[in-house]
Amino acid sequence: MIGQIEDVIIQTFCRLIIPFMQVFALYVIAHGHHSPGGGFQGGCILGASFILLCVAYDIGEAKGRMSEKLNVMLCSLGVIIFGGIGVVCLILGANYLDYGILHKLLRVDVPQARSLGILGIEIGVGFAVMAAMISIFLNLASRGEHEEAIEWE
């Protein structure tokens, strides 16, 4: 499946479509709080673009773009962004994830602070979901080896 079929049509098409998928995923994440979409969907599309790279080329090529260490670090970074915004709200004297109190820190009015807070949450969720999807796919496709292709049985 992976790395055994070299097809110029598939590789060229994937090379063309992956940047558009990633731009669309960033659009979905950034507009998540006032249109359909959000961190989870955008993160899934970001992860799917990387999975498409794995399927069209091979796992080694894809891991040259994003190593296992960077993947785990991005997953943790997403969780830290999510929890950190909540804890900052807690420190400033409001409830957990009550973004309205962030207007003291950001020097904007309360509705703007709520909008920016939910944007930060969406970005954190997007990072975490993207890294988790890539990690699940790599572990499933290579039996946890993270290296070579799978043979047909």
């Binding site: 499946m1 959000g38 969907q41 899934c44 599309i45 992860g47 399927v55 499933l140 799978i150 047909w152």
Partner: peptide, 24 residues
């Protein structure tokens, strides 16, 4: 919103997961 989630997760990513599991 639910339809978007279904298209991204159900039709996109989980199919790839099932295919990868079947290949193994």
């Amino acid at each position: 919103d639910v339809g978007f989630t279904e298209a991204a997760v159900g039709a996109g990513v989980s199919t790839v997961f099932f295919v990868a599991a079947v290949y193994n």
